[in-house]
Amino acid sequence: MKRYFGRKIVIYLSTFFLAVTVDWAIPRLMPGDPVMNLLSRVSVRAEAAEAMYGYYTKAFGLDIPVWKQYINFWIALFHGDLGTSVYLFPQKVVDVIIMAVPYSIALLVPAILLSFYAGNKFGAFAARTKILDNTLLPVGYLLTATPYMWLGILLAWSLGIVAGIFPTAGAYDFNMAPSFSWPFIFSLIKHWFLPFLSLFLVQFGGWAIGMRNMIIYELESDYSHYLESLGAPRSLIRKYAYRNALLPQITGLALQLGVIVAGSLVTEVVFSYPGLGSLILSAIQNKDYFLIQGCFLFIIIGVLIANFFIDIAYIIIDPRTRLGMAGE
């Protein structure tokens, strides 16, 4: 277990290190003066532009040696300083992002957990039952192949605009002030539901298909046949097979995280949900590079933390990793 964790932590630290280096290097690798590049493409008031030029020249520290710039970047990072947003001047990038992160998490975490649970259960249930299996296979594959934003667009259009049941923009009614009251919470849930549903459905298909394929493999293995020959009830064999089939699914969850996050970003764009996705879109449209860089770091840190949790879950679920019998 020590070895397992040691390896993982080395990988996470090097990933973080690499990500920060990329974040630092990319603006400097692009041709031209990065500060002028940044400012020439935004239209801001003259006094703001002057203040920003001074700020960015200092922030980039282009007059000092490259290695010092790099170290300064790290120091600023550990002070939580990711620069100042251009299009939301004078707000700090960190503050802007922290405002958006709760919405993204509120969307992502329930969608991931619920779809993982429901998809696996349904996949295991559908495997080897003729009718369900025959429909699950094509439907599941088509669902995982659906671009997240397209499902979002369809839901927003059909349930939101045509049927008028759900709102299609924002996180709560525009004429409401955030407060801890029932109407406000109801409004939050109403706005949250459609983006959640589109994230949930796409992932559900993937987990159901994955579990179906895995559990069929497990049901064909020796221990299942042995149990069968002993006369064990079908539900018991299924239970054992399910547990074994769940392990590769958890590894799959870790591998899929990046794709899921990307999916949630574009889903937020469709529903104008005020999370990181919408923030990135406006940052791109306003050429606010500091904001993009900040979002990049936040996403990477988030995915690394999630990966770490999945590793812990894996150790809890699979006793072999605990006993040091399996490395990865």
């Binding site: 990319i26 990307a262 979002c295």
Partner: peptide, 16 residues
């Protein structure tokens, strides 16, 4: 494998 590929593509594409 651990890096969210999309975030990486995002930052590269944004600067091009």
């Amino acid at each position: 494998l651990v890096i969210p590929t999309f975030a990486l593509l995002l930052i590269i594409a944004a600067y091009l």
